[in-house]
Amino acid sequence: MSMEIERECPSCGETATFWKTAYMEIHLGKKTKWRCAECGYGYIQIDGDISTAEA
């Protein structure tokens, strides 16, 4: 998995680079924390299916 991704940031309102700030294996799958390089908005993604990011 890459250390950075490009995606829409709900806080910035535009596409931004998100950096991986943490990663671990948990009972639900792979837990990854991402943080926007522009504004600091962060979200957690679990195994690619569960996310705390706004839709």
Rank of each mutant, 00 (worst) to 15 (best):
M1H: 13
M1I: 12
S2M: 14
M3K: 13
M3Q: 15
M3S: 15
E4C: 11
E4F: 15
E4L: 10
E4H: 14
E4M: 12
E4Q: 15
I5H: 04
E6L: 14
E6I: 12
R7I: 08
R7Q: 09
R7Y: 11
E8Q: 12
E8V: 07
C9P: 01
C9F: 00
C9A: 02
P10F: 04
P10C: 07
S11Q: 12
S11R: 09
C12N: 00
G13T: 04
G13W: 04
E14A: 13
E14T: 11
E14P: 05
T15C: 07
T15A: 10
T17H: 06
T17E: 10
F18E: 03
W19R: 11
K20E: 15
K20G: 02
K20D: 07
T21C: 05
T21V: 13
T21A: 07
T21K: 15
A22Q: 08
Y23F: 13
Y23L: 13
M24H: 13
M24A: 13
E25Y: 11
H27P: 10
H27E: 15
L28S: 11
L28E: 15
L28Q: 14
G29T: 05
G29A: 05
K30E: 09
K31W: 08
K31P: 03
T32Y: 01
T32L: 06
K33V: 09
W34D: 02
W34Y: 14
R35L: 07
R35F: 04
C36A: 11
C36M: 06
C36R: 02
A37P: 01
A37T: 11
E38N: 09
C39H: 06
C39M: 07
C39L: 07
G40S: 10
G40F: 05
Y41D: 04
Y41S: 01
Y41M: 01
G42A: 11
G42Q: 05
G42I: 00
Y43F: 15
Y43H: 09
Y43L: 01
I44V: 15
Q45T: 11
Q45Y: 00
I46L: 03
I46T: 03
D47F: 04
D47P: 02
D47N: 14
G48R: 04
G48A: 01
G48W: 01
D49V: 12
I50P: 01
I50R: 10
S51L: 00
S51H: 02
T52G: 05
T52Q: 03
T52A: 05
T52K: 02
A53T: 06
E54K: 08
E54R: 10
A55T: 09
A55H: 08
